[in-house]
Computed example of a mutant assay.
Amino acid sequence: MPKEEGQFEQGRSGNPAGRPKGARNRATAALEKILDGDAEAILNKAVEMAKDGDPVAMRLCLDRLIPVRRDRPITFTLPPIDKPADLTRATHALMQGVAAGEITPSEAAELSKLVDAHVNAIKTADLAERLARIEEGGLL
């Protein structure tokens, strides 16, 4: 398929640096401009409606006062992971934790990612150590 006029090369962005930190999109900037000066009155009205029992206003106020928690700390003991072979013990412990109701399946999935990252770190450190020993021995 021929390259169309004005298209960027594949894998190249028109703005490699991306959007500057803190930059607002046009819709947000326009909304802020509209609300400028009225924000306090609107907030007071929402609180008043919530106090009068409006369920939507109540939810809006509560969501701002007590935001939904994204995740929570969990207490779960994993066996030590000192070498890649220990991974199976760790995943077995995670499966047992889910089966026993100690952790949720999504918590186990997130912990599995941490375990995997830890095992990869062990593998990388082991490889670097082995390479250093080979270089010291003059085999390279």
Rank of each mutant, 00 (worst) to 15 (best):
D82L: 07
E4G: 03
Q7W: 11
C61H: 08
R69E: 15
P79S: 07
K3A: 11
A17I: 01
I81T: 11
D38Y: 06
E136Q: 14
P73R: 06
R130E: 11
T88F: 07
P80N: 04
A128D: 14
L140G: 08
R69K: 15
G97S: 04
R59C: 08
L94N: 01
A93T: 01
G14E: 11
A46E: 07
I34M: 13
L43Q: 02
V47K: 07
G22Q: 10
E136L: 13
A17R: 04
I122A: 02
M95K: 15
E9D: 05
S112K: 14
N15W: 06
H118E: 12
I74V: 15
G97A: 10
E40S: 13
T75C: 10
R64H: 14
A46L: 14
I103C: 04
G18C: 03
E40C: 05
V119L: 02
D63L: 07
I103L: 05
P79Q: 06
A46H: 03
P105G: 07
L87C: 13
K3F: 09
A128Y: 09
L43P: 00
G18S: 03
G138F: 03
A39H: 07
E102M: 14
S13F: 05
E48F: 06
P79Y: 01
A108H: 00
L65N: 09
R133T: 12
P16N: 08
R64L: 13
P2K: 11
T124H: 04
T28S: 13
E32W: 02
D86L: 01
L78G: 05
R24W: 10
H92A: 15
R12K: 15
V115P: 00
A85P: 00
A29Q: 12
A57V: 11
G6H: 05
V98K: 03
L35A: 15
D126L: 06
A128P: 01
G97R: 00
L127T: 12
E32G: 12
A117N: 12
A23P: 00
R89D: 15
S106N: 14
R12W: 04
I103T: 03
A93V: 03
I122C: 05
D36I: 08
D63G: 10
H92P: 00
M49W: 09
L111H: 01
V68W: 06
G14K: 10
N25Y: 06
R59T: 12
A23K: 10
T28Q: 14
G11D: 06
E5P: 01
E5Q: 04
V47F: 05
G138W: 03
D38G: 05
K21H: 05
I103H: 02
S13H: 07
D116G: 06
R59A: 15
A50E: 04
T77F: 00
R24L: 15
E40V: 15
Q10A: 14
A39C: 05
L114E: 08
A108I: 00
G101Q: 03
L139Y: 10
R130I: 08
